[in-house]
Design a protein around this nucleic acid. Structure first.
Lengths: 179, 179
DNA sequence: CGGCAATAGTTGACGCAACAAGTAAATGGG
DNA sequence: CCCATTTACTTGTTGCGTCAACTATTGCCG
């Protein structure tokens, strides 16, 4: 019996039991392995990283197909410097364009171009195929619901403001089934 | 094109229904948000990335507290060049040491030093605390089981050889099913 | 036993993300 | 109305991971 030193100092709770350690280990493995799979397919087929794909998707689904840099950064979980570099590279490829925000001259708007939309259309089927074959097809309908709930619980802590989950679908309503 | 055309892979199986899209979106959010949280805590408290932490943990739990580079790379999901760089940096900090493998003079063994073990001991409580507060405490016992099963299903596709999940727990049983 | 392919690992160059500092415009207080 | 502060974004530097190339050793096959 390892006596958990739940003394006064760091309040360190026991070093995980077997169930917890096993689930944690698997979660870490998924978190390490999934992004490279997504990047590899998108880079191969559309010369886009998954982050660039998400950025273009966010723009494509925005009203006017344009967003302010800060809003785009929030919805893609990027720092502003990171987004600035990414958008510059996308602009150099003609996939987005930047123009000053008329209402606030400090701000910059990014808009997806027809070429960007075309690339997105071309990339979407292959990406969906990858998502299906690596994730969705591996889960039962029940597990899909469970995953939704589990990830929701985790995001309450990882993303309390719901920046990542809210904007991409509906601007206003988030999670509450409130009337 | 490289896809074995067992189904109409280019014909794009429907673009995900709402349930699938919602679960996928949340999974992506977790996958994006979790690693930075782990890295931030470990970098702050032990000047270690989460990958370096896993590397040291793998060594600490290996017989003789040493492993060959290739085996270590497999169990941490690293390419050999990446691991080589990481181990060099850890060696410069005195946390591991490298020595030639006596049996195969091409090979290099990495061993964790007492300093490395001490750092691991010092870092573990804080790390466990982070894992608890960001993940484990957010889930019910039932959800933990579900997560274990879901991640297991995904890993069958992401990691068919079980490289990431196998070694850390059971040292021996890798290739041979019982005689 | 000579030679050629395969294996194990290291090294250097390039790309991307994080951090820090800088610019420019909007706010706010005296 | 002016100057300080905050906000919005860009730019340069550093560090890490990947890719490609290289060295060294082993194993194989005639």
């Amino acid at each position: 019996m390892t006596e958990p030193a739940r003394s006064t100092s760091t309040a360190g709770p026991r070093p995980m039991n077997d169930d917890e350690a096993a689930a944690w280990q698997r979660l870490i493995a998924v978190v390490e392995l999934l992004p490279p799979v997504l990047d590899a397919q998108l880079l191969r087929d559309a010369k886009l990283t998954h982050f660039e794909y998400m950025t273009l998707m966010a723009l494509a689904s925005a009203p006017g197909e344009a967003m302010r840099m800060t809003a785009l950064a929030a919805s893609t979980n990027a720092t502003l410097p990171r987004l600035s570099h990414v958008v510059r590279r996308l602009e150099e490829r003609g996939l987005v364009e930047r123009f000053p925000c008329p209402e606030d001259r400090r701000a910059t708007n990014a808009r997806i171009t027809p070429e960007g939309l075309a690339l997105l259309d071309a990339a979407a089927p292959g990406h969906h195929d990858t998502v299906r074959s690596t994730v969705l097809d591996a889960l039962s309908a029940e597990q899909l619901d469970q995953l939704y709930a589990i990830a929701g619980s985790l995001l309450e802590r990882l993303d309390p403001d719901g920046r990542l989950t809210a904007t991409a679908c509906h601007p206003a309503k988030a999670l509450d089934p409130a009337p």
